[in-house]
């Protein structure tokens, strides 16, 4: 991949990918340097893989997300990060001016797999086959997985009085 192609690809993907990495790491006060390190590592491994120039843009993005997902999982395994309990007390005001922040905190209550599926489905608009490729699972299992994750997230948001 030449520099011009990389710039175009980076501009298209970095914003959301960085958000994905940020939201997959459990601690909201996470070191920004760690997120940027994982972002750089994702693009480094992507370039090293040397996908042919004829590779479709959708496939490139899918491959990049596969790398990022594996990096986050490796990081969590190495740090022995545990899922946050759903009912851990942290106040959310219905009048909060920082709703994106509240949504972020609610998002962290979900399991890792649930967060992955929701992000890929509704931020990146991957179809079920693409999500299955990233998560290395069967495409038929994505629909029920997504429905469960969506229902759980909806419940958490409602309990916190965030949007309807």
């Amino acid at each position: 991949m030449d520099e011009e192609s990389f710039h175009a690809f980076y501009e298209q993907t970095a914003r959301n990918l960085r958000g994905y990495l940020r939201s997959m790491l459990n601690n909201q006060a996470i070191d920004r340097g760690l997120v940027d390190d994982l972002l750089q590592e994702s693009y480094f491994r992507f370039l090293k893989a040397g996908l042919p120039d004829s590779t479709e843009p959708a496939h490139r993005k899918n491959y990049l997300y596969r790398i990022a997902t594996n990096l986050v999982r490796d990081h969590r395994r190495a740090r022995k990060v545990e899922e946050l309990p759903e009912d851990s007390a942290d106040a959310t005001s219905a009048d909060s001016l920082d709703t994106a922040h509240d949504v972020g905190r609610a998002f962290l209550k979900l399991k890792q797999r649930e967060r992955e599926v929701l992000w890929m489905a509704y931020v990146e608009c991957f179809d079920h086959r693409e999500i299955a490729e990233v998560l290395r699972t069967k495409a038929v299992s994505i629909r029920p997985m997504l429905a469960r994750a969506r229902a759980r997230f909806g419940d958490i948001l409602r309990r916190r009085g965030i949007g309807a």
Partner: peptide
């Protein structure tokens, strides 16, 4: 809400 989260991040 997911898009709102992504915009915030």
């Amino acid at each position: 809400h997911m898009l709102q989260l992504a915009d915030g991040l």
